[in-house]
């Protein structure tokens, strides 16, 4: 049976059956590494992030990179025509990806992307929200919880202030955004399970 890698961070879901598991992984890694580097560059620009310990910077990035990528690449999921655009530029329908073995994670990603995009956030708002997603004091392995918590609170206050200023008649937007955080955790957990399945196979 042909193997597929249905993650849009891949150039295409098709996998060369002649390649070994290691080669497939190497190729996939080449595809998603630039996106991960962009997340790190983004983190470096968050005021106060570089003041955290190196250990905590790495821990936050390890735990949150997937969630940041979900936010940044929400537009790859086209809710109207139910397609996903892979990094190679080609679009694949949900039905096609399902036939390739995509799981419920795909539907959950569509739901999340649709709700996030429907909030109609500006680039600045989306960027600040992404910083809030990354700087979460309850990630595992955080050494100095107080420092991360202080930065997290500063970022949340800045986000609330920005949203309130830009959307004076839509006070629910800030609440809706905060409610996206547990949704992202849930997607992160589902994704980790998928990775486990991938590794096992």
């Amino acid at each position: 049976r042909r193997m597929h890698l249905v993650c849009p961070m891949n150039t295409s879901p098709s996998v060369d059956p002649q390649k070994s598991g290691h080669e497939v992984w190497e190729e996939f890694s080449h595809s998603f590494t630039p996106a991960v580097r962009e997340v790190v560059e983004f983190a470096k620009k968050i005021p106060g992030f570089r003041d955290l310990s190196q250990h905590d910077q790495v821990s936050l990035l390890k735990a949150g990179t997937f969630e940041v990528l979900v936010v940044r690449f929400a537009s790859l999921f086209d809710v109207t025509d139910r397609t996903v655009t892979f990094l190679g530029g080609n679009k694949y329908s949900v039905d096609t990806l399902r036939s390739m073995g995509a799981s419920d994670l795909l539907n959950s990603m569509f739901d999340f992307s649709e709700k996030l995009i429907n909030l109609g956030l500006s680039e600045e708002e989306m960027s600040l929200f992404t910083a809030v997603v990354l700087v979460s004091a309850d990630r595992s392995g955080i050494e100095n919880v107080n420092s991360v918590e202080a930065l997290q609170e500063t970022l949340i206050r800045a986000l609330r202030s920005l949203i309130t200023r830009n959307h004076p008649n839509e006070s629910a937007i800030f609440t809706k955004l905060l409610l996206k955080l547990p949704d992202l955790r849930s997607l992160n957990n589902m994704h980790s399970e998928q990775l486990l399945a991938f590794k096992v196979h």
Partner: peptide, 27 residues
């Protein structure tokens, strides 16, 4: 599988991307 980021090699990518910047930090 408590640490998928390490298993994926993500930690290595993250450390390398952070490194240059961290080396420049005054202690």
């Amino acid at each position: 599988f408590s640490d998928p980021a390490s298993n994926l090699g993500l930690e290595d990518i993250i450390r390398k991307a952070l490194m240059g910047n961290l080396e420049e930090r005054p202690e």
